[in-house]
Computed example of a mutant assay.
Amino acid sequence: MKTRATPLNPQNRFQPIVTDRQYDDGWYQDPADDTCPDSLATEVVDEQVRTIISRNQSPDVPFDQSINPYRGCEHACIYCFARPTHAYWDMSPGLDFETRLIAKPNAAEQLRRELDKPGYRVSPIALGVNTDAYQPVEKHREITRNILKVLAEYRHPVSIITKGALILRDLDLLSELAGQGLCSVRVSLTTLDNTLKRQMEPRTAAPATRLKIIRELAAAGVPTGIILGPVIPFINDHEIESILEAAAEAGAERASWIMLRLPLELDELFQDWLQRHFPERASHVMNRIRDLRGGKSYDSRFGRRMTGTGPYADLVRQRFAKRARQLGLNLHEAEPLRVDRFRRPAGEQIGLF
């Protein structure tokens, strides 16, 4: 499929009946036949959510609260660890994840309700962690922007992870929040190679555009860093130093990295992608991934799932840390965001009488 990362739509793990979709019965093979398109449009359905803030206790991430304005992601990154979550909505982690999205139009309204609860305890909210808050559908839905408006009104701290250029649309809100010590941004920068970007992340911003995002955010006073995630053995690991150098030159202050993760259905999807784009090194890549995970494609244990273990993981860690320190980039530490500025506008008005 043009501009899609995978042509596969594997059965999700919760469906009791399995259909073999790989069998070629000879139908719809005529390339001139309009019923067999070479691209697929994105479908979006709405969900009226009853809660919007998700909470976690994972020691592997530097936040305990997050908001995802959308389920599924049109950016279509083949390596996305969130793909298996689409199975919860009775859809495939494959092509469905890229083309069948769920939007949360009442997210800002629900956020306001949750922030107004007397028992709410303030801690930074990570925005767009499971799927990108600035994927293309956000351009006309503006759910992420409405969430930011509420956070700015309540003076609530927020951190954002994105690879979408649309974030620059909200520079007014981000600079306002950053001016009060309430906002930071991490740009996901996985390669400087445009060809690899198109193969690996077909609908994301180009590498040069992501560097532009860093420059403009930094110029506006928004604390900005990068995440090199994921590092993929023998695919983009040779770019570690050059990515750090480009990020530092653009104005990034912090940098961190994540090793490739292949939970559940993602294992099949990624291996198919490898065979299509890098058949000559596919087995080499997977052997190294298994070396990182104790002989398996994935190890979900805390403390290991984000980095892997063994000599290769240690080498990546040392290379990354050495060059980042040379460039003056802060390693892994989360940006300190203020929690003491939080206010409830409605409550303050009532308190005047």
Rank of each mutant, 00 (worst) to 15 (best):
F14M: 05
V18Q: 08
W27I: 06
L40N: 02
Q48W: 10
S54T: 14
N56V: 14
N56W: 03
D64L: 06
E74A: 15
H75V: 03
C80A: 11
C80K: 07
Y88G: 00
W89Y: 15
R100I: 06
L101C: 01
E114K: 00
D116C: 03
L148N: 03
G164L: 06
L166S: 08
L174T: 01
L177D: 00
R186E: 05
R186Y: 12
N194G: 02
L196V: 12
P207Y: 06
P207Q: 14
A208G: 09
T209C: 00
L211M: 00
K212L: 13
L217P: 07
P223F: 09
T224G: 09
N236I: 13
L244G: 08
A248D: 02
E249S: 10
A250T: 09
I258G: 03
M259W: 08
R261K: 15
R261A: 11
E265D: 13
E265W: 03
E268R: 07
W273Q: 02
L274H: 13
H277V: 13
P279L: 11
R281F: 00
A282D: 08
S283E: 15
S283P: 00
M286Y: 01
L292C: 08
R293S: 14
R293C: 11
S297K: 01
Y298W: 15
F302C: 07
F302N: 14
M306A: 09
D314T: 13
V316R: 04
Q318L: 04
R323E: 11
A324L: 11
F342L: 02
